[in-house]
Design a protein around this nucleic acid. Sequence first.
DNA 1: ACTATACTGAACCATATGGTTCAGTGTCAG
DNA 2: CTGACACTGAACCATATGGTTCAGTATAGT
Lengths: 121, 121
Amino acid sequence: MVQCQPARLDASFAALSDPTRRGVLEQLGRADASITALAETFHMTLTGMKKHVGVLEQAGLVRTQKVGRVRTCKLGPRGLEQEAAWIEKYRQLWAERFDQLDIVLEELKGKEKANGRKKRK
Amino acid sequence: MVQCQPARLDASFAALSDPTRRGVLEQLGRADASITALAETFHMTLTGMKKHVGVLEQAGLVRTQKVGRVRTCKLGPRGLEQEAAWIEKYRQLWAERFDQLDIVLEELKGKEKANGRKKRK
DNA sequence: ACTATACTGAACCATATGGTTCAGTGTCAG
DNA sequence: CTGACACTGAACCATATGGTTCAGTATAGT
């Protein structure tokens, strides 16, 4: 019941948790690229990069197409809407909790005296 | 160069890639909870849940405080700003790429007849 | 035809992850 | 004091992850 939407988030967040893969997405944001090109950028074997691309592809974050002997990778069909939505939901919860000030008070204690307002930096 | 910000994103995206941990965040969004309470919600041993909480804590997504014999978990100091920012950046890249229509055209092909409509950059 | 290129797949390796059990330790209730 | 409770830590297990090498296969260029 505490099921939070599909397992799709699992795959995409996991895909995003690796710096190389985030880098790949950034590179693909600038231009499409072959596996070889990506492998060179990240100083990695072709095979290794292909695995990363596989992970990204499975998460729907990139898609690839092989023409001739080169496989071209592009930013993939999904735009990370669900992930953004989940994060927004969390941020909202977070904000609400902090508005309820059982935590805010903790935060303030020590920074500000329960006095007049010394909002000076 | 292709370094995409600190390794902080590694930890938080990895933390978010597990459904149990996302569930824990949601539960903590409603109310603070002890390890025991969380473990019960997710039908898991105390030890197992403690590990999850550890991961979340290390990612800065929750923080805990032990008073007496119970450790209370709260939504933690960070609000996922950096993660939201990264995702936004990606979504922008994604939108730009699609605006450049080398992909959009692919998308349209089959949905729309090629009867003389021409967009050019 | 020959060779270099670009990928692919299998196998392997070290480490990390998600979970468990078991044996504690410290704290509250009576 | 005694026992139950809430957690903690170590050890273990199976599987996943991030990377490699090596041995292919298919295509492109000359």
